[in-house]
Amino acid sequence: MTKNTYTFNKKIQLIQCPDGKAGIRRKRKDGQQEDVHARIVRCFPWQHQSRFISIRDPKGKEVALLESLDQIDDAEIRNMLAMEMEAINYVPQILQIESIHDEAQLYNWKVVTTAGKRQFFMRRNESPRQLANEGLLMKDISGDRYFIKSLEDLDRESKDKLWIYLD
């Protein structure tokens, strides 16, 4: 069924499912082999993107821990994992800030991101979070995240508007 696999140990194999998604092939208690979809979780989603990747079954139980993506020789499997992680960890990057309005309790942000234009609300007492590498991470009231890669990359007007919210 699949040509590319990566073997963790006698019991667990990382495979590519027929629908293109990452899967786990494992032996059940009764000796039967089963294929299930895998959930790929980065242990350090912000600090270390390709190290310590937890491979979990659909119920959330970890079946293997990849210390580094480079452990996998098979380029297709590696790409499959990378793509999936990128999708799940996708956060629109803010390229430009059009306006930030104070609306009693909430701030109304209008921005332009890598995914297109967006309007979102942030709670008054939630500051943007400073990431280790200069980036800023923002979370809106629905839980959606947006990030700014580097303050220096923003244009002058955007920086001015952002100024108050920085710690």
Binding site: H37, R39, P45, P58, A87, I88, N89, Y90, V91, P92, D144, R145, Y146
Partner: peptide, 10 residues
């Protein structure tokens, strides 16, 4: 199935 991500969910 719903798979949750940071901003992108499927």
């Amino acid at each position: 199935e719903i798979v949750e991500g940071f901003t992108l969910n499927r």
